Amino acid sequence: MTVRWTQLTDQDAAAWALLCARAEEVDKTGEHYDAEDLAEELADPLVSLELGTLAGWDGDVMVAAGLLRNRATANPVNRVYFDGVVHPQYRRQGLGRRLTEWAIETTPVVSRSRFPDAPMELHVQAHEANTVKAGLLTASGFVPQRWFFTMQRSLSGELPAPVLPEGVRVEGFDHARHDLAALRVRNESFADHWGSSPQDEESWKQWYTGTRAFVPELSYVALAGSPGADDEMVAFLLTAFFEADEVATGRREAWISTIGTLRAYRRRGLASALIATCLQAAAEQGYDQAALGVDAANPTGALGVYEAAGFAVDRKHVAYVREF
Rank of each mutant, 00 (worst) to 15 (best):
D83G: 06
E128T: 07
R114I: 05
T73I: 05
T131Q: 13
V80C: 13
R79E: 12
V80K: 03
H123M: 03
V61D: 13
T138L: 12
A139Q: 12
R92E: 08
K133C: 15
A134V: 09
A55K: 11
G135P: 06
S140K: 08
A118Y: 07
D117H: 12
G135N: 07
A103G: 00
G66F: 06
V124E: 02
M120Y: 14
R114H: 04
A139K: 14
L137S: 08
T53M: 13
F115N: 01
R92V: 08
Q89T: 13
N78E: 08
G135V: 01
A74I: 11
V124C: 06
G59T: 15
A55S: 15
V63A: 13
D58P: 07
W102V: 01
G94C: 05
E101N: 10
A103F: 00
V110T: 11
H123L: 10
D117R: 08
E101V: 03
F115Q: 03
V61M: 09
H127F: 11
A126K: 03
A64V: 00
E101W: 03
L136G: 10
L54A: 12
G135C: 03
R92N: 11
G94N: 03
A64G: 09
H123V: 02
G66T: 00
V85R: 08
V80W: 05
W102S: 00
Q125S: 04
T73V: 12
H123Q: 05
L67R: 15
Q125M: 09
V77I: 15
Q93D: 01
A139N: 12
A65C: 15
G135S: 07
K133F: 10
G141A: 06
G84R: 05
G66W: 01
A118M: 06
N70W: 10
L54V: 14
R98I: 00
T73H: 13
P76E: 11
H87D: 15
T131G: 11
P76N: 11
P116R: 08
F115A: 03
P76T: 12
Y81E: 07
G84W: 04
N130T: 05
R97M: 04
G66K: 00
A126V: 14
Y90F: 14
E128Y: 09
H123I: 02
Y81W: 14
L54P: 14
Y81F: 15
